[in-house]
């Protein structure tokens, strides 16, 4: 499956005209990307450290997960929209960037993991869930989102 056509299309799209011509617009969009990265990271760190019994031990983990999931979703949507806009400025360069693909694949795995495994499993009463499954969820979620963020920053350096 060759996705080059997608990037060629993005490179000539209206988005690219905007993102290439106006540095200021790009910077503002990037601000939203960074702010929602902070929000997503905050939600991931809080809920996973709660599942591991590190943070907010006196608040039920069901409450923590429920409250963080909502804002995780909001942050993810803003990240993806601002990310597509930022990609349009350097679409063809990104297509040939290994770190970019590492990030996209990890992101895809992360989204599937979050909505197909983590969220449905955590809907159950946490005290009835195998504690090792909970720990496994928390550790893999921390690793995945750290990798997405770190490889994202590295795109700019590679």
């Amino acid at each position: 499956m060759d996705l080059l056509f997608l990037f060629e299309w993005l490179d000539t799209s209206f988005l690219a005209t905007m993102s290439k011509a106006y540095g200021g617009v790009f910077a503002v969009v990037q601000m939203f990307h960074l702010l929602s990265m902070s929000m997503l990271g905050g939600m991931v760190i809080l809920s996973d450290l709660r599942l591991l019994g590190v943070l907010m031990k006196d608040v039920p983990s069901e409450v923590v997960v429920e409250n963080t999931n909502k804002w995780f979703g909001v942050a993810l949507v803003v990240l993806i929209i601002s990310g597509i806009f930022m990609s349009s400025a350097v679409a063809l360069k990104l297509y040939y960037n290994e770190m970019y693909w590492a990030k996209m694949i990890t992101l895809l795995i992360g989204i599937v993991f979050f909505y197909a495994i983590r969220k449905p499993l955590l809907k159950h009463d946490h005290s009835t869930i195998n504690p090792w499954a909970l720990r496994s969820l928390a550790v893999s979620s921390l690793i995945i989102w750290f990798t997405v963020a770190a490889s994202g920053r590295w795109i700019g350096f590679s």
């Binding site: 495994i117 983590r118 499993l121 195998n130 499954a133 496994s136 969820l137 550790v139 893999s140 995945i144």
Partner: peptide
Amino acid sequence: LEKLSLAFGAAV
């Protein structure tokens, strides 16, 4: 889901 999350954790 429990089994999946354990396997997934190991894979990650």
